[in-house]
């Protein structure tokens, strides 16, 4: 499958670690994460609202969540975690595909949604990606999820593919 990417790169994303204050006044730390953080991330995803699942992830049971995270949070992937009072409440991941690009996904626990955390998490992950030399990022989003589509567009993603169920969006960093 050939994926389209915008011609013009988008730049000037912030890099982790960062401290942010969300629209509810909560202070969060955004930091790079890796294989050592899987156990903590499992506990975050166990709390995830099943209604917020996207295209089958995160899986529903704790063992399936662990298996999924062990498969995607690898040395080759980039991860940024948002913590509130030390506890992970949001996670963005960039997983390499076979064409030298990376797929992005983000999850924010329900009580922390709608406060601008997702936008800052994605922007911070893109700053990390840029530092690590990634050039092309893509994602898919269910087409009825207009808040997410709006968030990605605001960050600079462009719609590059149109399915019946999901949209594909992509962004060029360099």
């Amino acid at each position: 499958m050939t994926r389209r990417y915008p011609d013009e790169p988008v730049d000037s994303f912030p890099r982790p670690p960062r401290e942010i204050t969300d629209r509810e006044g909560r202070e969060l730390s955004l930091s790079e994460a890796g294989t050592a953080d899987v156990a903590e991330l499992v506990s975050m995803y166990v709390e995830f609202d099943p209604g917020d699942r996207a295209q089958g992830i995160p899986p529903a049971t704790e063992s399936a969540i662990r298996e999924w995270l062990e498969a995607v949070v690898t040395e080759d992937a980039l991860n940024v975690v948002a913590r509130h009072e030390g506890r992970p409440v949001g996670h963005v991941m960039l997983v390499p595909d076979r064409q030298g690009a990376s797929e992005l996904a983000i999850f924010v626990l329900q009580p922390y949604q709608g406060a601008g955390i997702g936008t800052e998490l994605v922007r911070t992950a893109l700053g990390l990606a840029k530092r690590e030399g990634l050039e092309r990022i893509w994602l898919t989003v269910e087409r009825w999820n207009s808040p997410a589509v709006g968030l990605y567009e605001k960050i600079g993603f462009e719609r590059t593919g149109d399915g019946s169920f999901e949209l594909e969006m992509s962004l060029r960093l360099a």
């Binding site: 295209q55 995607v72 992937a77 797929e103 898919t140 399915g163 169920f165």
Partner: peptide
């Protein structure tokens, strides 16, 4: 299929048949 990070994705044929 599943994407690199585990999302389920349908190809155009499957989408058409389902709809």
């Amino acid at each position: 299929r599943t994407s690199p990070l585990g999302k389920i994705q349908f190809d155009a044929v499957t989408e058409f048949v389902l709809l």
